[in-house]
Each structure stands twice: as structure tokens, then as C-alpha cells.
């Protein structure tokens, strides 16, 4: 089995450099045969693309997509400085 750290590094690099994703803020953790993806993106299409790229880069491993969508609420209270 490949060393988990190198799998995590490869997936993270692919997410940053692959044209379909170019996402830098995704945390990639590998435990045994499991890959966990965490972070926030702005739409579900991007969330799926990240999962696709991760699956391609870590074949044979189970990818858990724990990425959430960025909330964008109506502007709230102003802060007085």
C-alpha cells in the first residue's frame, strides 16, 4: 500500500493544479484506504468536480466528500470601528 502522506499530497496537488478544480483550500486526509476531503466551495458543481479529481488521483481508495457549500447570507449588522 502506498504511504498515506504521499497519496494526500498527490490529491491536494491535483486539486490545486487540475483545470477542473484549481482549489487551494481543500484539506485532504488519508487514513488507510479512506480519503477525506474537507473545505468550502461556492456551488455543488465545484463540489462534485473536486470529488471526481480526487477519485482519479487516488484510484482504489474510498473518497469521503465532506466539503460544504459557502453560505452567503444577506449582509448583517455593521461593525463600528
Amino acid at each position: 500500500m502506498e504511504t498515506p502522506q504521499y497519496v494526500a499530497a498527490r490529491v491536494q496537488r491535483a486539486l490545486a493544479e487540475d483545470e477542473r478544480t484549481n482549489e487551494l483550500g481543500i484539506r485532504v486526509d488519508v487514513r488507510g484506504e479512506q480519503v477525506y476531503l474537507r473545505g468550502q466551495v461556492s456551488c455543488s458543481e465545484r463540489r462534485h468536480q473536486i470529488e471526481n479529481v480526487a477519485r482519479e488521483t487516488a484510484p482504489g481508495m474510498r473518497v469521503h466528500n465532506e466539503i460544504t457549500l459557502v453560505e452567503m447570507l444577506e449582509p448583517g449588522e455593521e461593525e463600528h470601528l
Partner: peptide, 11 residues
């Protein structure tokens, strides 16, 4: 992703 609002307002 930090402010979670369309924008913050500072006075």
C-alpha cells in the same frame, strides 16, 4: 467563506 455574508460593513 470567513464572513459567510455577501459582504461585511465597517463604519
Amino acid at each position: 467563506p470567513v464572513i459567510k455574508h455577501a459582504y461585511s460593513v465597517y463604519c
